[in-house]
Simulated assay, not measured.
Amino acid sequence: MSKAITNNQSVDLISDFKEITKMRLAVSVVFSSVAGYFLGAEVIDFVELLLLAVGGYMMVGASNAFNQVIEKDLDVLMDRTKNRPIPSGRMSVKKALFIAFTFTILGLLVLYIINPVTAMFGAISIFLYVSIYTPLKTKTPLSVFVGAFPGAIPFMLGWVAATNDFSIESGTLFMIQFFWQFPHFWALGWWLYNDYKRGGFFMLPTGKRDRGTAIQIILYTIWTIAVSLIPVFGVTGRLYLTPVSGILILILGLGMLYYAYKLYKNRDEISAKKLMFASVSYITLLQIIYVLDKYIRIWI
Rank of each mutant, 00 (worst) to 15 (best):
M1P: 05
N7G: 06
V11M: 10
D12M: 15
F17T: 14
S28D: 07
F31G: 00
S32E: 05
S33N: 06
V47N: 13
V54W: 12
N67F: 12
I70M: 13
L77H: 10
D79A: 15
N83F: 13
S92A: 02
A96C: 08
F101T: 11
T102V: 01
T104V: 05
T104K: 09
L108F: 13
G122I: 09
I124Q: 06
Y129T: 00
V130F: 11
T138R: 15
K139D: 06
K139W: 10
P141K: 11
V144T: 15
P154V: 07
D165N: 15
S170E: 08
L173F: 10
F174E: 01
I176F: 09
Q181F: 02
P183G: 04
W186D: 02
L188E: 00
R198L: 15
G199N: 04
L204V: 06
G212H: 10
Q216C: 02
L219P: 02
Y220P: 00
W223Q: 03
S228R: 09
I230K: 07
V232F: 12
G237L: 04
R238H: 11
P243T: 07
L248A: 11
L250M: 13
I251S: 01
G255S: 05
Y259P: 06
K265I: 06
F277R: 13
V280M: 12
L285I: 15
I289N: 00
Y290D: 00
D293T: 04
Y295Q: 01
